[in-house]
C-alpha cells in the first residue's frame, strides 16, 4: 500500500476515525490517480459514508493521513478541505431546502469570485443536466428525489476541485432514475474527472469503475477490478448478501 505521495491525486493512508468512543474505520488506505474512478462498496453501516466524511473534514481523523496532490489535508476544517479542491456530494443531498435550484448551484461556486468563470460553469452544468435549467427557479424542497440528486451533483460541479467524492447516488431512487444518474456519472468520468464513489451494489459500477474496494467492518477486505469481484460469488454472498 506504500504508494509514493505525489503520484496520486488523492491518497488516504491508514485512516482511523469514528464517533464518540467507537472507531468506525480501523485503518483504511486507498489512492486515486488523476482521471480514475474508484468505488468503495460494502454493506450499510460499515463506514462508507464515514470514510468520505473523514476525507472532507466533517469528521476528525484520529490516525493516518489524507493528502491531495501531495499536500496533507487531514486535520483541516471542512471548509478548508473544500478550498483545497475536494468536492463532496453528500449522502441524502443536503440541499438548501428553502433556496431555488439556481441559488443552490450558485452556493457551489461560493469560493469562486470570478463571475465569468461561474457563469460558464453554470452553462456547463445546465447542458449536462438540462432538467435543472428547466427547474432553476423552483424551491429545492419541492423537487423530486431524482431532481434533488441532480442538484446535489450539479452543485458539486459548480465547485473548482481536483477530486469528487460522491456518496451513494442511487440511494432511495427508482431504477430508471438510478440509470439516469449513473449515465451522468459515466459522462463525468469520460470528461476526465477523478471520482471516489461510494455504492452499495457493485453491479451498478462494474462498467465505470477502475477499481473497487470492498469495505466491511471498518476495513477493506478485498480490492481489485470490478469484473473480478462480480465473479467472486463467495465474496458477494458474504459481504453483500448475494
Amino acid at each position: 500500500m506504500a504508494e509514493p505521495i505525489g503520484s496520486s491525486c488523492l491518497a488516504v493512508n491508514g485512516l482511523v476515525t469514528g464517533y464518540d468512543a467507537r472507531n468506525v474505520l480501523t485503518g483504511v488506505s486507498l489512492s486515486l490517480n488523476s482521471g480514475e474512478l474508484v468505488t468503495v462498496v460494502g454493506p450499510n453501516g460499515h463506514g462508507k459514508t464515514t470514510l468520505l466524511r473523514a476525507i472532507s473534514g466533517l469528521l476528525p481523523v484520529r490516525k493516518g493521513s489524507v493528502s491531495l496532490n501531495g499536500r496533507a489535508i487531514s486535520g483541516l476544517p471542512a471548509h478548508r478541505v473544500a478550498a483545497n479542491g475536494v468536492i463532496h456530494v453528500p449522502q441524502g443531498d443536503l440541499l438548501f431546502a428553502g433556496m431555488s435550484v439556481l441559488e443552490n448551484l450558485l452556493m457551489g461556486a461560493y469560493l469562486d469570485s470570478d463571475q465569468v468563470a461561474v457563469a460558464r460553469r453554470l452553462d456547463e452544468v445546465f447542458s449536462l443536466l438540462p432538467k435543472l435549467a428547466e427547474r432553476r427557479t423552483q424551491i429545492a424542497a419541492s423537487l423530486s428525489g431524482g431532481e434533488r440528486r441532480m442538484v446535489g451533483i450539479g452543485r458539486g460541479l459548480m465547485m473548482k476541485g481536483s477530486v469528487m467524492l460522491i456518496d451513494e447516488p442511487s440511494l432511495g431512487l427508482a431504477p430508471i432514475v438510478i440509470e439516469q444518474i449513473y449515465d451522468v456519472i459515466a459522462r463525468l468520468k469520460a470528461s476526465g474527472r477523478t471520482i471516489l464513489l461510494v455504492e452499495e451494489n457493485p453491479a451498478r459500477v462494474a462498467d465505470i469503475a477502475d477499481r473497487i474496494h470492498l469495505l466491511d467492518n471498518g476495513a477493506f477486505v478485498w480490492s481489485g477490478e470490478p469484473a473480478v469481484l462480480l465473479q467472486r460469488d463467495e465474496l458477494l454472498a458474504t459481504y453483500l448478501g448475494g
Binding site: S56, G57, L58, P77, A78, H79, A82, A83, H88, P90, L94, L95, F96, A97, G98, M99, E103, L106, M107, G108, Y110, L111, R155, M159
Partner: peptide, 24 residues
C-alpha cells in the same frame, strides 16, 4: 448578496455549507 446567501445556506444546512467551502 453572496454573503447573505451564505448566511441563509448556513442556516438551512451548515454541513452542506461547510462542504462548499463556507467558513461557517
Amino acid at each position: 448578496t453572496k454573503a447573505g446567501r451564505a448566511i441563509r445556506a448556513t442556516a438551512q444546512n451548515p454541513d452542506a455549507a461547510k462542504l462548499l467551502g463556507v467558513p461557517v
